[in-house]
Amino acid sequence: MTVEELSKKTWNDFETVLGANGGARGCWCMHWRLSIAEWTEGKGEGNKKAMSRLAQRKPVPGVIVYDDGAPVAWCSLGPRSAFPRLERSPLLSSVDDEPVCALACVFVHKKHRGSGLLPGILEAVCAYAASEGYSTAEGYPVEPPEGKRAGSDTAMTGIASAFLKAGFSEVARPRKDRPIMRRQLT
């Protein structure tokens, strides 16, 4: 798997991964970047335009993950401070003062969900984060009950079992179904 930064050049691949709805409910991966009022007001086209503006800046707001050249996933990443709503979240509050690369969203294209690609996607994203100078990656996956699948609007942060397979360890569990996981990068 390979990754490419979100840019004008890769925008069509981003749209392919997120689909016509922009991920779950018109999000366009702005959920953690805006207040709930701002996110709701921009739902759909407004959020899409906001992400398009971010895609033209440095640092990039995330990466597209490719499997054999085909776009299969999107990962929104950066320092926790790039995600104000994550910073304010009582559920996912900062564990400590260690600077981390927050993997705020790991959205897999619908035709690839449940295919076992997520650990490889996380590996590729971690390699990218390490190349950008991060020493620690932090994720906020869900852990659905045994035998159940998470919906795309709750699984947008990833699935805990895939994070474990990709070398992450649990560092906190603020709720039964919501671990905070980290991986040291080389």
Rank of each mutant, 00 (worst) to 15 (best):
C29H: 02
C29D: 00
C29S: 07
M30V: 03
M30S: 09
W32S: 08
W32L: 09
W32G: 05
R33P: 08
L34G: 06
S35D: 14
S35C: 12
I36Y: 08
A37M: 14
A37I: 15
W39M: 11
T40C: 13
G42Q: 15
G44K: 09
G44L: 13
E45F: 15
K48A: 15
M51R: 12
S52M: 13
S52H: 14
R53E: 15
A55F: 12
A55G: 14
Q56G: 13
R57S: 14
R57E: 11
R57K: 14
K58C: 13
P59H: 06
V60M: 11
G62Q: 06
G62F: 07
V63R: 06
I64W: 02
I64M: 03
D67C: 07
D67S: 10
D68Y: 02
A70D: 01
A70C: 00
A70Q: 01
A70Y: 03
P71C: 01
A73Y: 00
C75M: 01
S76L: 04
S76A: 07
R80S: 05
S81Y: 04
S81D: 09
A82F: 00
P84Y: 00
R85Q: 05
S89D: 04
P90Y: 01
L92F: 12
L92Q: 04
S93Y: 03
S93Q: 10
V95F: 09
D97F: 01
D97R: 10
E98D: 05
E98I: 08
V100Y: 08
V100D: 09
V100C: 13
V100M: 07
C101W: 05
A102T: 01
A102V: 02
L103N: 03
A104Y: 05
A104S: 10
F107G: 05
V108L: 13
H109K: 12
K110N: 11
K111A: 12
H112E: 12
S115W: 03
G116R: 00
I121F: 07
L122N: 01
V125W: 03
V125G: 06
C126S: 12
A127G: 13
Y128S: 12
S131K: 15
E132Q: 15
Y134I: 14
A137C: 13
E138Q: 14
G139Q: 08
Y140K: 07
P141K: 08
V142P: 09
V142E: 09
V142H: 08
V142N: 12
